[in-house]
Design a protein around this nucleic acid. Structure first.
Lengths: 195, 195
DNA sequence: CCACATATGGACCCATCGGTCCATATGTGG
DNA sequence: CCACATATGGACCGATGGGTCCATATGTGG
């Protein structure tokens, strides 16, 4: 019963494009015009397909959260040790400092910073994101504990929160313009808390 | 030779009011209208006295940076030990989580997040802010080393960067809605890197 | 008290914001 | 090939953005 004229664009692809813009510029600084150009859509198609800037943002945030968490879990599966995974995550965050592109940080934490508890709905989305990331790091810590690279006595939940916090701080340092060396030298200090 | 009609408002006070708004809402989300109300100024007086939103923002950011750095140095002077000062700073950042007010984080790091290297001028202001804060923590670390509470072998500069990064991460966690306990439990882990 | 310098209020400006609407194009199932 | 459902382009909308301008108020030094 699939009636009517079919879409001329790929919704997933359009969503990815929109996500990229929000990620790079934040919600407020992104205009519908910007989105239209990035997604290569007319205004009508945009509102028809996504309802509003706000609704689109929620979908992007959810998409980012799920994609990122899934990719992290994948990485955790494929890496040699839990401890190594954690170190790799931190160093790759630090690595944003030397890439030619502008650092974008993490969409979830960027949103936390932009809306800072000023919008209950958004705060809920952000909290879900933090939970997802925390869960990934908790799994990594628990694996590292089984592997004997982190003391079993440590609380995996607390360590996970610590790691999310540290990742976020690191990415903010990069955005603040800290040099590659500066930011890479921070990583071993973060990791030393696991000993 | 001070001619003409005198100001009806206190510029410093107006600046503080403006700083508060930028601090709470960021640059983009703050309208000139918002500033006018907070500063209790007419549009004419505003533009006459401060030139533009942008120029005002620079003055606020500079003011924040200097005031905050000065207050931190003051606190360092008055505290019992360098190590204690560092712990206090972290715990007070964590404490924002339970205050009734919305967490505002740090104006400098908020700005880093909002503009993320997209504006060279702003990036310069932010970098100066980071340098100031790093200098304070470096001084605290060096004092703690003299007091024997941090190993002399550690690099004070690296530790200072680590602490700025960690503070920033902590404040972002608060903004992301992490509970008081969650965030307070992160602090000892941050501090453990100093051992 | 006069001339002048600065301050102030408020009308006004144009660009852009997010969003709606309608006429038209283009596909589908019967 | 027709009826219909959906997609698309583009005109249009009111609100708000930052910023300017001018007439008027209010103070100063001579």
């Amino acid at each position: 019963m699939n009636m009517g004229r079919p879409l001329e664009f790929d919704p997933e692809q359009a969503l990815d494009a929109a996500m990229g813009v929000f990620w790079a510029s934040g919600y407020g600084a992104t205009s519908v015009q910007d989105l239209l150009e990035a997604m290569d859509l007319s205004k009508s198609s945009f509102y028809q397909a996504f309802g509003s800037k706000r609704q689109l943002f929620e979908r992007c945030l959810r998409r980012y959260r799920e994609n990122t968490a899934a990719a992290m879990l994948d990485g955790l599966d494929q890496t040699v040790s839990g401890r190594r995974f954690i170190a790799d995550m931190l160093y790759s965050a630090a690595g944003e400092a030397c890439l030619g592109e502008k650092p974008r940080g993490c969409l979830v934490m960027n949103t936390a910073n932009e809306f800072a508890q000023q919008d209950a709905t958004v705060a809920g989305w952000v909290a879900q994101g933090v939970n997802r990331f925390t869960a990934v790091f908790r799994a990594a810590v628990q694996r590292a504990q089984k592997e004997g690279e982190i003391a079993a006595a440590k609380d995996p939940e607390a360590l996970a929160h610590y790691l999310v916090s540290s990742m976020s701080g690191l990415k903010t340092m990069v955005k603040a313009g800290a040099g590659e060396k500066t930011v890479r030298d921070i990583v071993p200090l973060i990791l030393s808390a696991l000993d």
